[in-house]
């Protein structure tokens, strides 16, 4: 399974830097397991073509991922997802924290009791996962 295959559906928003959106996309792929640790990822050129972005942006995204230790590139061989477990678990917690923080920020304004909130979240998330699973099968 290659990262690029689903990536074609990646929709960018036009207000965040594209390269950061690419980095985030890779993190999501890693966290969901669509990209395995140590897996070879497409070249900068391939990813630019697949995501319909400019090669400069792809380059910038890869550089950012290298700096964050997300991917490793040794010499002339293709880049791979890191095998560093610590980094991988960090990504997972980062994504979760980011999402939860955003959620908390907006929900805080409504002051919903925690139990009620958790129940709603539980049912919504379950429904959403189920839908995603069905879509994948279809």
């Amino acid at each position: 399974m290659h990262a690029g295959e689903d990536s074609a559906e990646l929709k960018f928003n036009s207000r965040d830097p594209v390269y950061l959106q690419v980095v985030r996309h890779f993190k999501e792929e890693i966290v969901t397991g669509r990209l395995q640790k140590g897996q070879v990822i497409p070249s900068r050129r391939e990813i630019a073509g697949k995501l319909k972005i400019n090669p400069n942006t792809a380059q910038k995204a890869y550089k950012e991922m290298e700096e964050q230790g997300l991917i490793v590139t040794e010499g002339n061989s293709p880049s791979r997802i890191t095998t560093d477990e610590q980094v991988l678990s960090l990504i997972r917690s980062e994504l979760i924290t980011d999402a939860v923080e955003a959620f908390v920020q907006s929900i805080a304004k409504i002051q919903v009791p925690v139990d009620e909130l958790l129940a709603i979240v539980k049912s919504k998330v379950e429904r959403s996962y189920k839908q995603a699973a069905e879509e994948e099968q279809a």
Partner: peptide
């Protein structure tokens, strides 16, 4: 620069 504009001001080209 588009990326700088998004990064620094959070604005799209359209904005």
């Amino acid at each position: 620069n588009c990326e700088d504009m998004r990064m620094q001001e959070g604005k799209s080209v359209m904005d």
